[in-house]
Design a protein around this nucleic acid. Structure first.
Length: 262
DNA sequence: AAAAGCTATGGTGCCCTCTT
DNA sequence: AAGAGGGCACCATAGCTTTT
């Protein structure tokens, strides 16, 4: 019984006839003796087998890689999902999901971003595409645009807050990926029909533009929300000097974790 | 007030069975 | 044999509570 690891798919049997052989036999004599025997045997050229094997290996690799690409695509399309939510939405168990994620991290296709929720327990983790990851998506024929770094985080907050407010009976609308459009991160309509805009600020950048944009759009209330108190204070300070008292009264400043847990 | 302990929450690892 | 997947124990963490 012969089994060749890796090069021949199945074990096979061979028969070796007993043949008394003189000790001083030459190679030529052996070849001459074996020639008619070898010619009578059928054989498959090894190149075909190798081709088939390589094909099979390639298919396996592609199948595996496609799972990684699927995961990557999911991260791109739903950047607000946490790690385990990604697993669930892809139908991966925790084991498989963890493995795929570990690969993506090892290859530096994605980065982990923990979120300080202000709640007890481990911080949920979301994933963000790296430049390499973005390139991989494009190589796979998926149109993918570069998105801002704080993007995934603010989307997570927007979705989480939307969840919270929906439970309280608000209508909610989350900003999509509309390019260049002046939309707010999260739009709320309370049960009485008051329109509220929530802008999630990861830094003080563009804060005043956002506030003015929302005020002009006619929201009854504008909430500036941030993870950090220092950011809120910084924005508020600017607003104090830029806005009139009427406008100032419509703007509120809240810590994200307090909105989430309050 | 600092330290230690508790606990809810999110994520991970091990071991097992089943399938291919 | 290797991979998939399920079950379950375990780890890490941060806020809360109790002890010192």
């Amino acid at each position: 019984m012969v089994k060749l690891s890796g090069r021949w798919m199945y074990p096979f049997t061979i028969r070796i006839p007993l043949f008394p052989m003189a000790k001083d036999v030459t190679d030529d004599e052996v070849q001459a003796h074996m020639k008619p025997v070898l010619e009578s045997l059928s054989f498959a050229p090894r190149t075909d087998i190798l081709k088939r094997l390589m094909e099979q290996k390639r298919e396996e690799r592609e199948k595996k890689a496609s799972r990684h690409i699927q995961f990557l695509k999911n991260v791109y399309l739903h950047p607000w999902l946490t790690v385990t939510e990604h697993y669930a939405s892809l139908g991966l168990g925790s084991k498989t999901g963890t493995r795929v994620k570990a690969d993506l991290l090892r290859w530096k296709w994605v980065e982990e971003i923990p979120i300080a929720t202000g709640r007890r327990g481990k911080q949920p983790i979301i994933l963000s595409l790296t430049d390499i990851g973005l390139e991989k998506l494009r190589e796979s024929g998926i149109q993918a645009r570069r998105r801002g770094k704080g993007g995934a985080k603010s989307l997570w907050w927007a979705h989480k807050l939307a969840e919270i407010y929906e439970e309280k009976g608000y209508q909610t609308k989350i900003e999509g990926f509309a390019e260049g459009k002046a939309t707010v991160d999260l739009e709320l309509i309370d049960p009485e029909g008051r329109r509220i805009a929530i802008e999630i600020q990861m830094s003080t950048d563009h804060a005043m533009e956002n506030i003015i944009k929302c005020l002009k759009a006619g929201y009854d209330e504008v909430i500036i929300a941030s993870e950090e108190d220092t950011i809120l204070r910084g924005i508020e300070e600017k607003a104090e000097s830029c806005l009139g008292s009427e406008a100032r009264a419509r703007v509120k400043y809240k810590l994200l974790k307090e909105v989430l847990n309050g």
